[in-house]
């Protein structure tokens, strides 16, 4: 008997997908109809994520990269984002490129199927975020990329600011997958006046490639 495995994103947009791909049992939308020129909300829930815990994180090097020293600091290299959460814990998000090699000796838990993972990129995304959270993404004391652990639309989230320029930027957020549908609804409603549209993974990959260049 053949067992058919399907992995589903906690969030589905009502817009019509133009191009999709089945990857690791996920149906990944690569492009939507009428994506326009942003801002965009992009569902990246199929992208691999891990939670890493160790009493001595200074000596752990996931994907060959050092984990940042201080909570709230992030390291982005070779398409892998590492976020220091506290003294003993970090989250690892695979954004682009080849999947990372993870340390075998540290406690590493895959959280891909447990959480929603969204990207908000383009013009006015901080104006949209301002309607949903009191967190200050433009705090001059912080340098990008940086991590906030706090409420977004009243939901506890991990939020990383990857880019912030005048009038434009990009943030990534994860939260428990049970909030997926409502989180998508709240973000699209808040972004309606700014022309926020769902976009496919290709738009995100182009954006992250330009950011890394």
């Amino acid at each position: 008997m053949t067992v058919e495995i399907k992995r589903r994103s906690p969030l589905t947009f009502s817009e019509t997908p133009l191009k999709t791909e089945v990857r690791d049992y996920w149906t990944v939308v690569q492009e939507y109809e009428a994506e326009n020129d942003g801002p965009w909300v992009i569902d990246l829930s199929h992208r691999s994520r891990w939670d890493l815990q160790d009493s001595d994180l200074a000596n752990v090097q996931p994907a060959g990269a050092l984990i940042p020293d201080a909570p709230g600091h992030c390291a982005f290299d070779n398409g892998v984002l590492i976020n220091r959460m506290n003294r003993t814990q970090a989250s690892i998000w695979h954004l682009a490129g080849a999947p990372p090699e993870l340390p075998a000796d540290a406690a590493c838990t895959e959280t891909t199927d447990a959480t929603l993972f969204l990207a908000l990129i383009g013009r006015n995304i901080f104006a949209i975020a301002e309607k949903l959270t009191a967190l200050d993404f433009k705090d001059p004391a912080k340098t990008v990329p940086f991590l906030y652990q706090g409420p977004f639309s009243h939901v506890p989230c991990q939020i990383v600011t990857l880019e912030r320029t005048t009038g434009s930027g990009g943030i990534l957020l994860t939260c428990s997958r049970g909030y997926g549908r409502d989180m998508g609804h709240a973000i699209l409603a808040a972004g309606d006046e700014f022309g926020l549209r769902p976009a496919g993974e290709n738009t995100f990959l182009r954006w992250i490639e330009a950011l890394s260049a």
Binding site: M85, Y148, Q149, G150, P151, H154, P156
Partner: peptide
């Protein structure tokens, strides 16, 4: 407890 944040 920082319940909506880091949980500490």
């Amino acid at each position: 407890c920082h319940k909506d944040g880091c949980g500490v």
